[in-house]
Design a protein around this nucleic acid. Structure first.
Lengths: 156, 156
DNA sequence: AGTGAAACAGTGTTTGG
DNA sequence: CCAAACACTGTTTCACT
């Protein structure tokens, strides 16, 4: 069962708070307060509202995988056998840490993933030993990202 | 010219720091210090090292687009005319806030994007009015994400 | 080089209005 | 939403290993 999504109304002040915190999660609340022109307690109050509405689903430091040597990003379309239990495949994919995203999709592929590897050879190993070896996976089609030009969240 | 990537050696303490801050960017440094068993000053020092190495490229609050009414995510493969200036196309795509990712890719498509829309109708409008109208775009192929099962960073 | 204790300014959060 | 209040945090300094 899906959890219900409550709509939320956010005003200009909420947007300013969100813009500050989506560009730097550690922006001091009091600094935001000064820029917006209201008290820190008010910002704090609004943040609680935004978190309660689930519009904010957490915060994180961003890791640059290139510094760790990951230089190959790829998208992989996966064909599944008709009889297979999809959830088992998802469970297996979750165990592969290099798989960063996983979607059920329309079109020819049943599942579509984003995967990160050290290099093309490592990608091939992952596909052979970790992806295509999953029970129910028929075959895969890979699209390698030569260069990522945009990576962002939705604009507030 | 690409900026040089300096390799970095991180030990178990660095990993613990990164794990804490990638799961919650606002984790107090002193709390990490207590869990790891070293002083706050030491954590602070290591954080500076990690930022200097660019392994940490910032921090952000995570927005849940569903709460804002975005319910359709799609991947779109884009065919370009041979004569077109790719950078102009990227520049145009950057101006479309619903485009969250953009990659140059191998394979049939020249460019591959991830895009977010309120619904299928909105997606169609975006494709017709904002993407296919870009000079140099020949045609597009869309893959709609029915459900996203995995969304994470590389494991530390 | 890396560590930890101490110190201060500044922050996060609560309370009462 | 504000102002005040308190405990705690972030950050620097410095002596030590």
């Amino acid at each position: 069962m899906k959890s219900k999504i409550k709509p939320i109304i956010i005003d200009g002040i909420d947007k300013k708070i969100l813009r500050a915190l989506t560009s730097d999660a550690r922006t001091p609340i009091l600094e935001i307060a000064r820029n917006v022109g209201i008290s820190g307690a008010a910002i704090h109050q609004r943040l609680r509202k935004l978190e309660k509405s689930k519009l904010i689903s957490g915060s994180q430091f961003i890791i640059n995988p290139k510094v760790l040597g990951y230089s190959t990003m790829a998208f992989v379309g996966i064909y599944l056998e008709k009889a297979v239990n999809n959830e088992d495949v998802i469970r297996a994919l979750k165990k592969v840490p290099e798989v960063l995203e996983c979607h059920y999709t329309t079109g020819n592929w049943n599942i579509f993933i984003k995967i990160l590897a050290y290099n093309n050879n490592h990608l091939m190993q992952l596909l052979n030993n970790k992806i295509q070896s999953i029970v129910g996976v028929l075959r895969t089609e890979s699209i390698i990202s030569l260069d990522q030009q945009i990576d962002r969240q939705i604009r507030i």
